[in-house]
Amino acid sequence: MISVTGLTKKFGKINALRDFSYDFRKGQVTTIVGPNGSGKTTLMKCILGFLRTTEGDIYFNGRSIKGDSVYRQKIGYMAQKPSFPENLFPIEIIDLIKSMRNGSTEYDEGLISEFEYYSELEKPFHSLSGGNKQKLNAIISFLFSPELIILDEPTAGLDPLTSKILKEKIKLERDKGKTILLTSHIIDEIEELTNDLIMLYEGELKFRISSEELKENETRDISGMIADLFRKAQNE
C-alpha cells in the first residue's frame, strides 16, 4: 500500500528521521509509538507531502509521491490540533473540503449522525467547543472513504463516548481493508486498535512487531511491551 524506503529528514542539522524504511500493510492499523520528539509526526507529514524529504522516497501504490498531489485524493488526515476559518460554519467547511476532490460524489457522512453533529453544523467555527472542533476534524478525515487514513492522536480531547464511536469507526474501516496509520500516547487505545506496532526513537525505527507476533503474545500486554521498548532504547 504505502512503502517508505531510506527516508531521512533533516531540519538544518537536526536529524528528525534517519534512514527509515517500512511497508505499511493494507487492512491493518499500524501504530507508531515513541517518546515526544521521536519523529512520529514528521513521518506522517512526509507521507502527506508537507515536508520535502532530504533522502529516500515514499511510494503510494507503487508510485513515488515526489511532485505529485493527486495521490492525496486517497488519503484522509486527522491532525493533532485542527483549525478552520473561524467565521465559517462546519457545513461550509465540509462543502469546501468536498470541492477539493473532483470526481468524488459519494460521501461517508456516517460520523455526522453518530456524533449527533447536525445541531453544530450551522454555528460559526470559533464558537464550537474544543471537542466539537475535533469531531469536525474526524468527520472530514473519513468523508471520502480514503484508502489510507492517517490519525495523529485522534482521541486526544474527545469525551469517552465520542472516542468510543471513533475507535469503532477506525476498526470498521480497517476491516474494510483500509490502511491506517495511528499515533497515540493512550495505552488503552493502542491496545484496542493496534495490529502492527512500530517504535521510533530519535528518528530511527527501533522495533517492529507484526500483528502475528502480537497475537502469539498471549497476554497481549502491550503497555508492558512498550515500556520495555522505551527502556531498552534509552539504555542503548
Binding site: 502527506l48 507531502g49 508537507f50 498531489s69 493527486v70 495521490y71 492525496r72 485524493q73 488519503i75 488526515y77 491532525a79 490540533k81 485542527p82 483549525s83 478552520f84 476559518p85 473561524e86 473540503i97 477539493m100 476532490r101 472530514i140
Partner: peptide, 15 residues
C-alpha cells in the same frame, strides 16, 4: 491564524 487550516488544505489533492 489560517496556518493550521493551510495544513489541512495541503493534505487534500490541491496544488
Amino acid at each position: 491564524n489560517e496556518k493550521p487550516f493551510i495544513e489541512l488544505l495541503l493534505s487534500q489533492p490541491v496544488r
